[in-house]
């Protein structure tokens, strides 16, 4: 009989500290992609609200802490940290193993992100609870602000090594400047 041993996407790659930036992998627990069917948005939101206290998020927003839900594209959100309740009005797809999520924290975190993410992450524009689908380097991914100096990046699991490589490179550039 098989005895399967799990391994996380960034096994052997993280955590790391480069200059003032700390990079670590985040295990958010189960991840379910929820995509309400046509006309099923409010019914889906109601179930979520009853279960977790938050509904289906508007575009570019994340709600809750643990569990939480983050908008993840047209008609889609990722429920993280809890089993998905029965949602008859939505397609629910287990993606617990599909994504690598890393947390970046440090005084210069925005300078590092400016080297990999093309969108405007200035604090007055991209506030806590804001999330965006965008590019992370050349990779499709997502970025979420978790605090003043803390962000989470989401990328495809198979690209975990590339994600770490891109972040290391960006962080090295930033730390080389600040040490000048």
């Amino acid at each position: 009989m098989a005895k399967l041993i799990p391994s996380p996407p960034c096994a052997g790659l993280l955590p790391k500290t480069i200059g003032s930036l700390a990079i670590r992998e985040v295990d958010v627990g189960p991840i379910t992609l929820i995509a309400p069917f046509s006309g099923g948005g409010s019914a889906t939101s109601d179930v979520l609200k009853a279960e977790f206290g938050f509904g289906f998020p508007s575009p570019n927003r994340a709600l809750g802490e643990n569990p939480r839900i983050a908008w993840f594209g047209l008609n889609q959100a990722l429920l993280m940290g809890a089993a998905c309740p029965a949602l008859p009005q939505a397609a629910c797809v287990d993606q617990s193993d599909g994504w690598v999520i890393v947390c970046l924290e440090g005084a210069k975190v925005q300078d590092v992100l400016a080297r990999v993410v093309p969108i405007d992450l200035r604090a007055p524009v991209f506030k806590q609870g804001h999330t965006a689908r965008t590019l992370v380097g050349h990779m499709h991914g997502a970025v979420t602000r978790m605090g003043d100096q803390r962000f989470e990046l989401t990328a495809m699991r198979s690209m975990a090594a590339t994600l770490v490589h891109e972040l290391e490179r960006a962080a090295l550039g930033v730390s080389a400047r600040s040490s000048q």
Binding site: F37, A91, V93, D94, Q95
Partner: peptide, 8 residues
């Protein structure tokens, strides 16, 4: 609705 599950 559809979603890529290649990675999962």
């Amino acid at each position: 609705r559809f979603a890529s599950v290649t990675e999962h």
